[in-house]
Design a protein around this nucleic acid. Structure first.
Lengths: 343, 343
DNA sequence: ATAAAAAATTTACGCGCGTAAAAATATTTT
DNA sequence: AAAATATTTTTACGCGCGTAAATTTTTTAT
């Protein structure tokens, strides 16, 4: 038999001198065969480079070894990072991640779900677009495929939700800003598509009430996922002399803050916590670029690693449980305040 | 027959009242069956939501409808953007894109190639890591799978290369900077992993020679893909008073420039083309964030759309040609100078 | 050494679809 | 209307592997 001319498991079995069902068993669980057999197979595997046909495998399994991952917007490095963590963890379990991005578009999100369904994945990790999502479509998808939501919650959809505790984010930044200077004014989109944004707004209001302070909100126009541009345009509008009630701005998220800081720079507004600064700016997410803004951005950091590993672990628990949980779990991770130069 | 209880093509064929081979033909090419037959099938498709099993399909086709896409580092928004364009274009051809990221790691790149091979894709679009790539491994992969390289070239590997004309990038920025102020000093990594970086260095040298000017290079240490951090750390080292031969810096790429600009800000160095500026900074790539640096970054822009569509078009030409070209084509796209505030 | 348990083998069938060849039917052309 | 052409149907086989049941062989325990 030619070294690289093995077409199927039958031929491989015959060159190893072991029956095909045993080979099949080995590929499904290397530990399920006798050590000596395993050794023989692995020796042969080095010599003849045979791999089982993935399509034939998946056709005959009720459950494939695929795990779908859908993020709303992959061009956002935040989601690229999360996806990286998720992929690695999925691989650790011996499963095969398939990454999709909705690219901020409802139809693409739907198409991705449909495509994913046809892949018959063992489970799916979904960070939905949020308000723009077709909830019915996702709900229907979740009936067929064991699905865990992460990052962005939709009440009642998916068997569990893993995300960040927005109150923890906002309470830490508000408390810090308030303690070290003037009361923060909340800077956000007037009509955010992301449910976390709503939660952060409410957390800000709750926190201000708790501190017995008057809340101030600046709500800017804009839609879509170009948050930096929206933040910048909004900032250029509102950053007029004496237009702000306080000299501290708390942005709903880092991408808005990146846009806002670029506007401040352009307008010559000195941002920071120095004595001669005119404005302090803080935000939430610890976006990969927040270290490189001017000045560097004080923010509340996600626990990427924990959110990712908890999401994957929960998904595999779900798969083992047969795809259904008795009650929908929600697990939220607290933020870690990252003090940099902007506030 | 229950509306959503159709398991296979046989059952679907019987509810439509048409033979299975005809149904199969329809799914492979809707136009290959009589219009009346097509209508009947599509009516039934609305009523009974049946989809052919993707695994059974691919098992029996010599060529699948998959197109693999591998980028070196997806957390870089530049590659996320390119990937988005590629995906869309692949879908336009009726094929199914599978996106992989090497995450800057040689082993992950190899694993991704292996995984992709087992998917038996019709073709692959590969942006390799560059110097860190295992060239033999890629070469071997290319023997089995029709592959087009993009963004980052490796001589002789792959059936074609689509990328950017680095000389066009650098000549435009050098010419512009030289015309409007002092001669640019080239800022780069001393030992860049990316072949484009080498080409840009050479282009800078060639261009300076052509202009009969003395070239100045600043080469900073660092490895990996955290270019912003490398640029920042390098800048903090070299930005001492009178350390630079000229007051104009041309960065090899935007991510280094983002780091450098953040260092400039921290050091209180005024960057821009105003009279009171101390330093001008320009760069290459038109990274999605270069609009939001402080000041906004003057740079040379890739033609994302053209590179992406040309890559995909070339790949499908390659597939139609049976997976081999007579000679390896190289297509390079020119840059477009984007003048912003930094230079 | 013998019995019990574990692992491997043999045999056999099924998965859902592609596809080829021959026969039957429908459509278009003359 | 008949002939020529195009389409569909029937029949049949194969793809590569999962998996179940019965049997044989090997390993472990007594």
């Amino acid at each position: 038999m030619d070294v690289d001319d093995i077409k199927n498991m039958d031929e491989f079995a015959s060159v190893v001198g072991i029956s095909r069902p045993t080979i099949s068993k080995y590929f499904n669980d290397a530990d399920s065969v006798r050590p000596t057999t395993r050794l023989k197979i692995e020796e042969a595997l080095k010599k003849y480079k045979y791999r089982p046909n993935i399509y034939a495998i998946n056709q005959n399994r009720k459950l494939t070894k695929n795990i779908g991952i859908i993020v709303p917007y992959l061009a956002d490095p935040f989601f690229a990072e999360i996806a990286r963590f998720l992929e690695r963890r999925v691989l650790d379990f011996g499963f095969m991640p398939s990454l999709f991005s909705a690219h901020g578009d409802t139809d693409i999100e739907k198409t991705s779900l449909d495509t994913l369904r046809s892949l018959r994945p063992a489970g799916v990790l979904l960070a939905p677009l949020g308000r723009a999502s077709d909830k019915r479509h996702i709900e229907e998808f979740c009936r067929d495929v064991p699905t865990i939501l992460f990052d962005s919650n939709i009440e009642g959809i998916g068997e569990a939700f893993i995300g960040s505790d927005n109150f923890s984010f906002v309470s830490q930044t508000v408390e810090y800003l308030n303690r070290t200077g003037s009361t923060p004014t909340f800077f956000e989109m007037s009509d955010p598509a992301n449910p976390n944004a709503i939660k952060r707004r409410n957390a800000y209001l709750a926190m201000m009430k708790q501190l017995e302070l008057e809340p101030h909100m600046v709500q800017i126009e804009g839609s879509g996922w170009e948050f930096e541009e929206i933040g910048r345009a909004g900032a250029l509008k509102i950053l007029k002399p004496d237009a702000l009630p306080t000299d501290t701005i708390l942005c709903s998220n880092d991408r808005l803050a990146i846009g806002l800081l670029s506007a401040c720079y352009e307008l010559g507004i000195r941002v920071g916590r120095e004595k001669d600064s005119e404005l302090r700016v803080a935000s939430h997410d610890d976006h990969p670029y927040s270290k490189f803004t001017c000045p560097s951005l004080t923010t509340a950091a996600h626990d990427y690693e924990s959110v990712a590993s908890q999401s994957v672990d929960t998904l595999f628990k779900l798969i083992e449980a047969g795809g259904r949980f008795n009650n929908r779990e929600e697990k939220l991770f607290a933020a870690r305040l990252i003090m940099r130069d902007s506030a």
